[in-house]
């Protein structure tokens, strides 16, 4: 195979690409299909497919390639089962205190966190995807728009809707 410095077949290029993109892809797949273990398996399969096709996929096309392959894999796996978002085991409270991030400290009871997680889990897929990419991965609307191939306005609308849906689900607590 080619040892070209910019070729996807170049071991170093491939490794760096994996290191910089696999985590976000895994999170993205988790938000979309609701299963973290499965998401990690799909990431593996998608990157193996990229490696096997490395001669045909240039490194600047590789990102959209793995996202497409992984999404298709996820769809074919979940086609026959209703997607149930498994949030209990994986979404955990951040270790670092949150005071620095939100100036007005709000005491959050454990009970509230559980309800919030359940509410996020029951969001429509697209709203959940956008909401969690924004909150957990700290992606800007522009970055999220690039990932899902839609306009920034569409992402903003989904984010607005997601907050509205959460507010409605949680009620006045």
């Amino acid at each position: 195979m080619s040892d070209n410095k910019n070729s996807t077949c170049n071991e170093k290029v491939f490794d760096n690409f994996f290191k910089s993109h696999s985590k976000l892809l895994r999170n993205y797949l988790y938000y979309k299909f609701g299963d973290l273990d499965q998401a990690e398996d799909i990431v593996q399969d998608a990157f193996i497919k990229l490696w096997n096709n490395c001669a045909n996929v240039s490194i600047d096309k590789a990102k959209s390639y793995v996202y497409t392959v992984a999404t298709n894999l996820g769809i074919s796996i979940t086609r026959h089962q209703k997607v149930k978002f498994k949030y209990q085991d994986y979404v955990t409270q951040r270790k670092s205190d949150i005071n620095h991030e939100s100036p007005e400290f709000i005491a959050l009871e454990k009970e509230y966190m559980e309800k919030l997680k359940a509410a996020i889990a029951s969001l429509p897929e697209r709203q959940r995807e956008v909401f969690l990419l924004s909150r957990i991965d700290k992606k800007t609307y522009k970055e999220i728009a690039e990932l899902s191939g839609v306009s920034v306005k569409a992402i903003e609308k989904l984010m607005h809707k997601a907050l509205g849906t959460l507010r409605k689900t949680l009620g006045n607590i």
């Binding site: 985590k23 999170n27 969690l132 909150r135």
Partner: peptide, 17 residues
């Protein structure tokens, strides 16, 4: 209510990768 949702959401994290 929205401020509370945001504070809660910002406290969320995933299992490490």
């Amino acid at each position: 209510y929205y401020a509370k949702i945001m504070a809660g959401a910002d406290a969320l994290d995933l299992k490490t990768y």
